[in-house]
Design a protein around this nucleic acid. Structure first.
Lengths: 225, 225, 225, 225
DNA sequence: TATGAATGAGCCTTCATTCAT
DNA sequence: GATGAATGAAGGCTCATTCAT
């Protein structure tokens, strides 16, 4: 871009090279994420990551200091944007708590179901213990922030009388569990499962249980979907 | 040293030795379970397992053919008895489905919370992918059987009109997720957590949500606990 | 030894095994010394050391934590005994300083010429800079102690009027240089040399120069050798 | 950037560029010499040499075929001029052998003490064994020629009756040793030394010992310095 | 000419596994 | 049965070398 007025070929080549170099770290963490999720940190060889990313083993060390640094980058670069995107949802449905909760769960379900980021919960559960620093980071920057998000949604619903007066703090974890398990399941037992429940049906069941479980007895079911 | 006396205690010593010998495999799998759960399969060294069990590394090979065989034994010997015990509960509360469900969840919660077996879900999630054979075994002998158990309970409740007519197959997984997550949490992020929800309170919230979520609108809350 | 009264075969076997195990570190450092001297630290592969010692590469790690630890052991275990032996010479010839100096130089020459320890000066010169800790140790425990030894000898000679009143501190280093160079030469250019001066002849020349260079002009040459 | 102006300074820039280009190999070998001496050949990375020389790593390969070729150049380009300069001294003091020897030792001492070339002896000692070709070159072109030089000086002194009739061939090495050791010391243990003897004092002691050691008993001390 | 991203062979180190005692 | 010394294959990491720009 910057030297595009100078010489067509050179400019393009430089741009291509630069684009490639700038994209490299992302390609490497993507390959690493997939393999870490599939096999675990220790059982994944750097050769495999390199091969999947289409580079040589040495190239990994041009971008990351060590295998552990690569692990950290996989987590940090992968998950924070997702959380930030999630936080943007809160203000859109302030006046309809049930709709808000439904949207949050649905949006999160999409993220976990259809992007590679869905593997991160499994990865953190499996390997976090060996990386206390990353574990703490994940707890502070992902788990805690996600909890705050849902806390606001539930609190709003209870304040408006849409939800029963429940133990919000505890219910958050209960509510999140089914979707977390779905993401985990997808990367662990999904391969074994024969006639498994389809994700969409599982999501419906989850929303059904949660919304019925929270709803104030007198309230009518919200069927605007 | 202990049987260096040429007489007298020999009988007792033999008994002790035999008892010890027979208990060995269990001591070894117990040590292995703890370390596999804490660090993962690949990151756990046989030296560490041996040290924790109070034997030498070579001794492990007297009882298990390989590290992988030890892993299989850890899973198989640990979990099947638990499932079998669980299956015994079903007949005790046939006439009170809500009570039955509550007892099943509570019994399971006790198992996961207070025994080392609580680490097995995390372990299978983390490492199962690398051991297809064990994974299949776990799926067939633990997950499927557990699902059947809860299927019967929910079906009973729906048939009796105590529970709403829900998608039973899907609801089973939804219902089990919170307790599974509790067990997983205990072995992953528990160390990071500051003011976390106490397990008992978490269990209450889980039962609250599930039973309210399933209950037939007209039914009164069952408070016989 | 300790159980030799118990059973001949077992006792012998155990003794053999133990002797081997106890001798191992020495065998390993000997092999390492030879190769470090010949090729330098960095250019010596652990495989080569292991092969020369007749063990596998992994065995090295049963006795030394790292390649660097092996280097330290090579220096420390090899040189200190030699220094201590040297210090024993001082008292034997207190009354004849010229003889004392001659014996010290001769004894040292023998050590450097006919044992593998002769390679240590070259090794320290070549690699010490990369191991400050070892370098300091060598300086304190070898160089400084050796200097003290020769200082005493020269001081004695000057006090008795056998030697000229020279700058003792400086002369020590000058006097030691020829023998050090001999040891170094043997492990560096000796291979290239065609008609080189024989070590014995080189020693004679050294003693000739040093003793004539130090002798009080009036003194007669000491020819009691 | 520096020649971005389309006119005027082009001539000067070219000259600068050319001068720089011609000086490049020398800058590179200078950087390499310093690092090889400090860390050894194997432990010195080409990145470090390039950085010290202010060029990129790839540039090294524009001037030298390999790391080993760079090593050869370091030795060959560095030392031969020094020897040639030394050979010029011989004819200046033919009539005063003691003065000649003193001047040769002093000139050499200056070379070793105050220029980077002083590191070459250490470097050859440490690494020569791994480069037989360079070793042979150094032996033939440096050591042998230096010996011839000193041989002539001693022979002259003995012939004139200024020096005792010593074993000239052997004495050469003895005489050179102290100065060689000084150069070596400077690049190995100098960092550890606390109250070390100053180089000048060391040189004085060396000349003192050597000249007194060689002098014909009847001759008076030459004090014209 | 100069750069620096990319490569891949090689080495240190670990650890599951074996076996003599 | 139990031990622990020994093994050697495998993986993380380095760095000399190449080459497209």
């Amino acid at each position: 871009m910057e030297d595009s007025h100078h010489s067509g070929a050179t400019g393009h080549a430089k741009t291509t090279a630069r684009r490639r170099k700038e994209a490299r770290p992302g390609e490497l963490t993507a390959a690493a994420l997939a393999l870490f999720v599939e096999r675990g940190f220790a059982a994944t060889r750097l050769d495999d990551i390199a091969e999947r990313a289409g580079v040589s083993k040495g190239t990994l060390y041009l971008y990351f200091d060590s295998k552990e640094a690569l692990f950290k980058a996989v987590i940090q670069e992968g998950i924070v944007p997702a959380i930030e995107a999630g936080e943007a949802l809160l203000n859109a449905f302030r006046d309809d708590p049930e709709r808000l909760l439904r949207e949050m769960l649905f949006g999160w379900w999409q993220l976990l179901s259809s992007t590679p980021l869905g593997g991160i919960p499994k990865l953190m559960i499996a390997e976090g213990g060996n990386f206390p620093e990353v574990n703490q980071f994940y707890f502070d920057e992902v788990i805690t922030r996600a909890h705050r998000l849902f806390y606001a949604a539930l609190e709003l619903g209870v304040a408006k009388g849409v939800f029963r007066p429940v133990d919000i703090e505890a219910q958050i974890q209960v509510i999140l569990a089914p979707l977390l398990m779905l993401a985990i399941w997808k990367h662990s037992f999904a391969c074994c499962a024969g006639g498994e429940v389809a994700p969409q049906r599982y999501l419906d069941a989850t929303l059904d249980l949660i919304l019925n479980g929270l709803r104030q007895p007198g309230q009518k079911e919200n069927t605007d979907e």
